[in-house]
């Protein structure tokens, strides 16, 4: 029997705002399958986002949804989780929202290891505003504000998250749709701050400026650059050049999460 996505969707809110060929819908379906796998109580689940195309995702899903201000998802979500640790808190948004204007909140959520899952849809561009370069746009690539090619080096979101203290970091792609739900489900189950970066495509504002002739070509690129971590272990540095590792990149189950630690603060304060 076909998977019933509709029971997780708010009635009457489709069609979504995303352009034909955009991968955000694939990610949303992956998130829904993950929520179904884990049998999450939707009344007790909050999805928090910032601003941008990817940040419109929560509105479609029938749980407690909070579409905040640009870059602030992690900070709002921290308030939700601190005040009500028993809630499942999931964040989502794009690369610009999460790593530029929201970069500070992002790294500190990682550092606190607060038990939330952050799904970053990285399509290398500010899509909603019409295709300006983001901190994840590759050097040399074109955007509406890099007409001569991007002079900036880009972030590696996964490395940034690991370096900042996140205890579960995974990466998938919009092409590898069947892997997305598994990565997200594992991330949600992880006790601590988990980051799932999904390499995504924006045919409208990124693809056409960077000589991708079609969505299929963009999807094929995601297929070609992705190398599962296990497979990468057997490959040489030369073979890995230009490739991107996918799968669970980092996992540390030894570190305590933030709300557990704050519960101990309460215990200590009340013992006095």
């Amino acid at each position: 029997m076909a998977f019933d996505y509709e029971k997780y969707l708010r009635p009457g809110k489709l069609p979504h705002i995303w352009c034909p060929g955009c991968g955000h819908g694939i990610v949303m379906k992956g998130l829904i399958r993950a929520m179904d796998t884990l049998k999450l109580d939707m009344k007790n689940t909050a999805i928090v986002s910032g601003i941008g195309c990817a940040s419109r995702l929560p509105g479609y899903i029938d749980c407690c949804t909070l579409h905040t201000a640009h870059g602030r998802a992690a900070a709002f979500a921290t308030g939700v989780k601190m005040a009500k640790p028993e809630m499942n808190v999931i964040l989502c948004g794009g690369d610009g929202d999460g790593t530029a204007i929201g970069g500070n909140h992002f790294i500190h959520a990682c550092r606190r290891n607060i038990d939330m899952t952050y799904i970053i849809m990285n399509n290398y561009i500010y899509g909603m505003t019409g295709g300006q370069f983001s901190p994840c746009t590759p050097t040399g690539h074109k955007a509406s504000t890099t007409p001569y090619g991007n002079p900036d080096p880009g972030f590696d979101i996964a490395k940034l998250a690991i370096g900042a203290g996140a205890t579960f970091v995974a990466r998938g792609t919009a092409f590898h749709a069947n892997q997305i739900d598994k990565l997200i489900a594992e991330a949600i189950q992880h006790k601590g701050f988990s980051v799932v970066e999904i390499l995504d495509d924006c045919p409208t504002t990124y693809g056409r400026r960077n000589k991708y002739k079609s969505v299929i070509e963009m999807m094929n690129r995601l297929k070609e650059v992705a190398v599962p971590v296990k497979a990468a272990e057997k490959m040489t540095a030369e073979q890995l050049k230009g490739k991107v590792l996918t799968g669970v990149l980092y996992k540390d189950d030894t570190k305590s999460d933030y709300t557990t630690e704050y519960a101990k603060v309460i215990e200590r304060a009340q013992a006095k």
Binding site: V48, C64, L66, T68, A69, R72, A75, F76, A77, T78, G79, V80, K81, M82, A83, K84, M87, N104, H105, I107, H108
Partner: peptide, 17 residues
């Protein structure tokens, strides 16, 4: 929080609960 904006955000998030 990590900054003033984050502090305000955390308050609003907490208030919603």
């Amino acid at each position: 929080m990590e900054d003033e904006i984050g502090a305000m955000a955390a308050c609003l998030g907490a208030s919603l609960t």
